[in-house]
C-alpha cells in the first residue's frame, strides 16, 4: 500500500500513513481553508487500509491546534477508523494544554475506539 506523506505547513498538519512500517500519525496545526478537501485523501487512504489492515493499528494524533472545521473532519477520520480490528488512538497533548486533553476526551466519547492519553 502506498505511503501517504503530507508535509505540514503553517495551516495544515503533517500526515504520515505508512502501513508497512506501522506508522499512522497526524501532527501539528490544522486550520486549512477547506478542511473537507484537505482531509479527503486521508479518509480515502484509511478507507483502503481498513479492508486490509495490520493486526494492530496505533493511530497517533499529536495536534498542537485545530480549528472547528478540522474538528469535524477529525471526527470523520475517527469514524473511518472505528471498524478496524486492533485499532487504538494515541492522543498526545502538551502537558499544560487542558483544552487539547479535553478535546481528546470528547472525541473518545463520540466513537467506539480505545483512547490512550499521552503528554509530550
Amino acid at each position: 500500500m502506498e505511503i501517504l506523506n503530507l508535509k505540514g505547513t503553517e495551516d495544515t498538519p503533517t500526515i504520515l500513513l505508512d502501513k508497512k512500517n506501522g506508522i499512522f500519525e497526524i501532527s501539528g496545526r490544522s486550520l486549512p481553508e477547506d478542511s473537507a478537501e484537505f482531509y479527503r485523501p486521508v479518509l480515502e487512504w484509511i478507507g483502503a487500509y481498513a479492508s486490509d489492515a495490520n493486526p494492530s493499528t496505533d493511530f497517533v494524533f499529536k495536534l498542537e491546534y485545530f480549528n472547528t472545521a478540522s474538528s469535524k473532519l477529525i471526527l470523520d477520520v475517527l469514524s473511518a477508523l472505528e471498524d478496524i480490528k486492533g485499532i487504538k488512538v494515541l492522543w498526545y497533548f502538551h502537558d499544560d494544554d487542558e483544552d487539547m486533553e479535553e478535546a481528546g476526551q470528547e472525541f473518545s466519547e463520540l466513537v467506539e475506539i480505545p483512547f490512550e492519553f499521552k503528554t509530550y
Partner: peptide
C-alpha cells in the same frame, strides 16, 4: 456548551463555505 458542541459535531456537515457551524460555540467555550 460542551453538550451543544458534541451535538453539533455529531450531526453537522461541512457547509459549502467550509464551516462546521461550531465557530461561535468554540469561541464561547474558549
Amino acid at each position: 456548551l460542551k453538550e451543544m458542541y458534541k451535538e453539533i459535531i455529531k450531526n453537522t456537515q461541512i457547509s459549502d463555505k467550509g464551516g462546521a457551524g461550531l465557530g461561535f460555540v468554540d469561541m464561547a467555550r474558549k
